[in-house]
């Protein structure tokens, strides 16, 4: 239907010192127009390899990848025009001995934007780089380098963005600004967001795929995945006498004065807790229900 990125049976192996490492293993994935897709997975799972294959920097061994109908291997130039890529090692993607503005002008022209001044003014304004645009990138902080790399990726106003660990190593203020930008101004763009930071993924992405050892082990909306993997919720209690709660099914002492109760019926369990409290006159310091987090889905998926 409105599929814009299609990955079919893609495998990529690297050969190092005579040994083969399968970085991506028979991957099938489909990304829809205008969605923010989160690609998660532990370090070494193959996320960067997927992003690089989509950006035409790495050629897959097997399978096919199309973006907006174009084949990444044969029609790379058509794809590059509609793509904005933020590499994982963004600091290495810049010329440190050019100024910010010289970097922007250089890359704009390589992208066939021959009159980029207006666009560059807009981007330096957007990323708050105006004051620094004529200083060498050497002198920039990591946050500023990051914003510059982002600005370069946006020069051609691409409808598709591939972001590899876009917030890793980025200070909280820059990180906040970028998330805000994506949420508010990029609703029309299709975004693939690779990261192992589950908080940012949960915050930003509508759908996720979990990679482990190059295989897609889970895929779906965050809510659906949570429901699938955690039908129960947990109740956490901090009380002075935890042992008396052990009569409830699924209760476990998990620390000094701490009880955790797993349940699939929160209301009924809460009632039991209240009953016990009244009978025994216990002092409750804290009580809260804990909803499953993406982290738990992640761990379940990786251990599968």
């Amino acid at each position: 239907m409105n599929e814009i990125i299609s990955i079919k049976n893609v495998t990529k192996q690297y050969k190092t010192k005579g040994e083969y490492i399968t970085a991506v293993d028979n991957l099938n994935l489909s990304i829809k127009k205008h969605e923010v897709f989160g690609l998660i997975g532990p370090t070494g799972a193959g996320k960067t390899t997927v992003i690089k294959m989509l950006s035409t920097l790495i050629i897959p061994d097997k399978g096919s990848i199309t973006i907006d109908g174009y084949d990444v291997v044969r029609e790379g130039n058509k794809i590059k025009r509609i793509l904005g890529v933020l590499a994982g090692e963004f600091t290495r993607s810049l010329y440190w001995r050019l100024t910010g503005r010289q970097n922007l002008e250089f890359f704009a022209k390589l992208k066939n934007i021959w009159h980029p001044q207006e666009r560059i003014d807009y981007l330096t304004e957007l990323f708050d780089l105006k004051k620094w645009e004529n200083k060498l990138v050497m002198r920039y902080s990591t946050g500023m380098k990051h914003k510059l790399a982002f600005a370069i990726a946006l020069l051609n106003d691409p409808p598709i963005l591939l972001l590899d660990e876009p917030l890793t190593g980025v200070d909280p203020i820059t990180s906040y600004e970028i998330k805000k930008l994506i949420r508010e101004d990029f609703r029309e763009k299709t975004i693939m967001w690779a990261s192992h930071n589950l908080y940012e993924i949960e915050e930003m992405c509508s759908r996720i795929g979990l990679l482990n050892h190059g295989k897609l082990v889970l895929e779906g909306s965050v809510e659906a995945l949570k429901k699938k993997y955690w039908s129960y919720e947990r109740i956490l209690l901090i009380v002075d006498r935890p042992q008396i709660f052990l009569e409830i099914d699924g209760a476990k002492i998990t620390g000094k004065n701490r009880v955790e109760i797993k349940t699939d019926d929160v209301t009924a369990t809460l009632k039991k807790i209240v009953d016990i409290c009244i009978q025994n006159t216990v002092n409750i310091e804290e009580i809260k229900t804990v909803k499953p987090t993406l982290e738990e889905v992640f761990i379940a998926g990786v251990k599968k």
Binding site: L57, N77, V85, E89, R92, S93, L110, K111, N112
Partner: peptide
């Protein structure tokens, strides 16, 4: 070595 080759290769050049 610098890592800029990839950035250049991301453009139509």
């Amino acid at each position: 070595m610098m890592g800029t080759l990839e950035s250049v290769m991301l453009t139509v050049t």
